[in-house]
Amino acid sequence: MARILLIEPDQVLAEAYRQALRRAGHRVILCASAQAAIQMADEHCPDLIIVELQLVEHSGIEFLYEFRSYPDWQSITIIVHSQVPPSEFAANWPLIKTEFNIASYLYKPLTSLKELTEQVDAELAHSNIT
C-alpha cells in the first residue's frame, strides 16, 4: 500500500479520485492547496504525489518549485494530473519535466479513473514501491 498525496482543488473530483485510488489499494492524503500540500507532505511522507496545476493562490508550478527545493523530496515521484492541456506548455515542457523531475503528465479531461490508477501503479512499480 503506497501513500499518495493528492492535490486536487475540486471537492467532488477529489472524492472520486480518492475512492478510485483507495480501491486500487492505496492510502490517499487529500489537500486542496499548495500551502497545505507542503505541510501534508512533511507530515505524511508520501510515496507519490498527484498534483493539479490550477490551484487557488499558489499554482501547481509554485508548489513544484518549493517541493523540489527540499533535498529529502527530490526523488519522490510526481504525476501532474491537470486540466491545463499539455499543448499550452509546448516547447517548454521538456524543460519543466526535467526541472521538476515529473514522472508523467495526464490531461485530466481525457484521463479515466482506470488510466489514472494504472499510471500510479506503473510509476510506483518503476520506483520499486508496492
Partner: peptide, 13 residues
C-alpha cells in the same frame, strides 16, 4: 469542463 468531468468520473466510479 468541470461539471462534465465530474459527471464522467462519478459515472465511472
Amino acid at each position: 469542463k468541470l461539471p462534465l468531468l465530474q459527471i464522467a468520473r462519478l459515472v465511472e466510479l
